[in-house]
Computed example of a mutant assay.
Amino acid sequence: MNAWRKIGENSSEAVILAVDFDSAARPEARFPAFAARVRPAAELWLTAQPDNAEREFLTAQTYLEFWAKRPPGRVEALVGFCVGCVFLPALADQIERIQGSRPALLLIDPERVVTSSILRDFSNTVGGMAVLTDAEREAAISEARSLCDSAGDDFASAATGVVKLYEATAGIAFDRLGLDDETSEDLMGLFRSYVSYLLAAHTLIPKPTRAAGVALTSAQFRSGAMHATSERSFPVGTESMLDDERVAEAARAFFQGVLR
Rank of each mutant, 00 (worst) to 15 (best):
M1D: 13
W4I: 12
K6I: 04
I7V: 12
I7P: 02
E9R: 12
E9N: 06
S11I: 12
E13H: 04
L17D: 00
E28L: 13
R30V: 11
A35F: 00
V38F: 03
W45C: 10
A48P: 08
E56R: 15
L58K: 04
L64G: 01
L64P: 01
E65F: 03
L78P: 01
V86F: 00
L88Y: 00
D93P: 00
Q94Y: 04
Q99E: 04
G100H: 12
P103T: 03
E111Q: 13
F122H: 06
D134Q: 05
E136T: 08
A140Q: 12
R145V: 07
C148A: 14
C148M: 02
C148W: 00
S150W: 05
D153V: 15
D153E: 15
A156L: 13
S157Q: 14
S157F: 06
A159D: 03
V163T: 05
K164I: 06
K164Y: 07
D181G: 04
S196Y: 01
V214Y: 09
L216V: 07
A219S: 14
F221N: 08
S223N: 10
A228I: 04
A228N: 09
R232Q: 15
S233E: 14
M241H: 04
E245Y: 01
A250H: 08
F255R: 09
Q256E: 14
V258Y: 00
L259T: 09
